[in-house]
Every structure is written in structure tokens, then in C-alpha cells.
């Protein structure tokens, strides 16, 4: 009995000594602020900031190599909390959300073939460019919805739609889309052009009932070119999100009906 107690106590002593030595010589001092910053971040691990998860971003923040405010999911509140911990200023960034720049539903945009392969946009796009007549439009096979960590994207009527309330702006869908028609836009912007086809009007009309023809009417209605609310690329209007239009009548007056007032809420959950 006594021997056993002695042996156990001896092992305990040796182990304690080893631990003490290890603590003295092998320890890695971690900045306690890393843990605090990680706790302040939303913990979605979406990777939208460009770092490997929230922990990676927290380390970069503490090291001073990343700008405060890159977390799209946390937004301004998160940036402020981080600023308090680190004693730096929060760079004010607006919450950004994904926008699918296409409104060609099955009834509006013609389909030129019957695609019955794998239900994935990337595969469909690799098969004769997809079954949609408009080669720029949303195919609606859900490559974006599959990668969305928040389930904010739904596919309805052959078209992907983002629910603004759920979107954390991580940008994964932007990368997944083979047609490159998803863009991160400021959440406060209400007027959007939902088309990505830069072709001439007649060519657009041939393939889609709701395609932008580049008529510049939205620009005229929003105060002309000087106001700078719209940028034109070829025959495609784009909202200048640095200076977005606020007058929602502009969208209502679009003759092509490809503009929308905050389409995000059209599909609720």
C-alpha cells in the first residue's frame, strides 16, 4: 500500500517538475486580445474577409496586418467592438450583400435547349454555354445556393435570389457563379439593374423580355449624366454603387423592366 502511494506520488512529482520546466521554457505567449477579438467576431467562419475563418482574421487584426471592418458578416457593430478591444479606429464599412444581376425568369428569358445533365451551373455552362438564350443570364442550377453558408439564396423560376436579411456578404457565391453575375452591393442601395447583358437592344430582346437595352432612360430620370448614378458598359446600365440613386421612381420607369427596387425581399423565408 505504502509503496503504491510512494510510486504514484513520485510520478506526480516528476510530472509536475517536467510541466513546470515546460511552462518556463516551451510556453508560447498568445496575445490575450486574439481571444477577445475572436469572441467579438460573428464566428461564421465564412472566409469573406479573405482570412481562414474568424480566428485567422482576429490574429491578423491583432498583428495590425488587416484593416478593421473587413468582416462583412459582423458589420459596423462588430468593427466597433474590435476597435474598442484594440484601441484602433473602426474604418466605417457598409454592410454589403450579394445581388444576382439577372431577372430573366423562365417565362421572360427564352431557353434554347432542354438541359437534363447534372444540376449545377458550372456543368451546364460548360455544356454549350447553358440552355438559356442569353449567354450572360442566371442559369438557375444553384451553384451559388450550394455554397451559401447561410442558406440565403433560393432558386425559384429558374433564377437565383438572395435574401438580404440572411446574406452576410461573404462573397462565396460571387466566386461560384460561372456567369460572373453576382456582385456585392451596399445593403442600403435600393435601386438595382438586374441584367448583365451588354449586347445591343435588339440582340437582348431576342433572348429575353426583361433585358437592359442601354436606353439611358434611368440616367435621364435620375438627373442626367452629371448626377453619376449610373455607369454604362456597352449597352448595359449599371448602378454606380459609390453614388446609388435613391429615387425609386427611376426603377419603375425602366421600359425594359429590368430594374428593381430592392429585389432581395421578394422571396422571404
Amino acid at each position: 500500500m505504502a509503496t503504491a502511494i510512494l510510486i504514484i506520488a513520485g510520478i506526480g512529482l516528476v510530472a509536475a517538475a517536467a510541466l513546470a520546466v515546460a511552462d518556463r521554457y516551451l510556453s508560447v505567449r498568445e496575445d490575450p486580445r486574439i481571444g477577445m477579438v475572436t469572441a467579438a467576431l460573428p464566428g461564421a467562419n465564412c472566409g469573406g474577409c479573405g482570412f481562414a475563418g474568424c480566428d485567422g482574421y482576429a490574429r491578423a487584426l491583432v498583428a495590425g496586418t488587416a484593416p478593421n471592418g473587413a468582416c462583412a458578416a459582423g458589420g459596423a457593430a462588430c468593427a466597433e467592438a474590435v476597435a474598442k478591444i484594440l484601441g484602433v479606429e473602426a474604418t466605417a464599412t457598409e454592410r454589403r450583400v450579394a445581388l444576382v444581376k439577372c431577372c430573366g425568369t423562365r417565362s421572360e428569358a427564352i431557353r434554347v435547349g432542354d438541359y437534363n445533365g447534372i444540376c449545377d451551373c458550372n456543368v451546364a455552362a460548360a455544356t454549350a454555354g447553358g440552355d438559356k438564350g442569353c449567354t450572360y443570364g442566371c442559369l438557375g442550377y444553384g451553384a451559388c445556393a450550394n455554397v451559401c453558408p447561410k442558406g440565403a439564396i433560393t432558386i425559384a423560376d429558374g433564377l437565383a435570389k438572395v435574401d438580404k436579411r440572411l446574406c452576410i456578404g461573404c462573397g462565396k457565391c460571387v466566386k461560384a457563379c460561372p456567369k460572373h453575375i453576382i456582385e456585392l452591393v451596399p445593403a442600403s442601395a435600393t435601386v438595382h439593374v438586374l441584367c448583365a447583358n451588354p449586347d445591343k437592344g435588339p440582340a437582348v430582346r431576342k433572348v429575353c423580355g426583361v433585358g437592359c437595352m442601354g436606353c439611358h432612360l434611368c440616367e435621364k430620370n435620375s438627373g442626367g449624366k452629371e448626377a453619376g448614378h449610373f455607369i454604362f458598359q456597352g449597352f448595359l446600365a449599371k448602378v454606380n454603387y459609390e453614388n446609388p440613386p435613391t429615387d425609386e421612381q427611376v426603377a419603375a420607369k425602366c421600359p425594359a423592366k429590368c430594374m428593381s427596387v430592392d429585389p432581395h425581399f421578394e422571396t422571404g423565408h
Binding site: 445533365g117 447534372i118 456543368v123 460548360a126
Partner: peptide, 13 residues
């Protein structure tokens, strides 16, 4: 099964 298409998808990515 659209096996060839899936192979093509893997190769593309």
C-alpha cells in the same frame, strides 16, 4: 448516370 459529364466537371474544376 451522367458519368462522363461528372468527370468533365471534375476536370474543369
Amino acid at each position: 448516370r451522367t458519368i462522363t459529364q461528372m468527370c468533365r466537371r471534375a476536370k474543369n474544376s
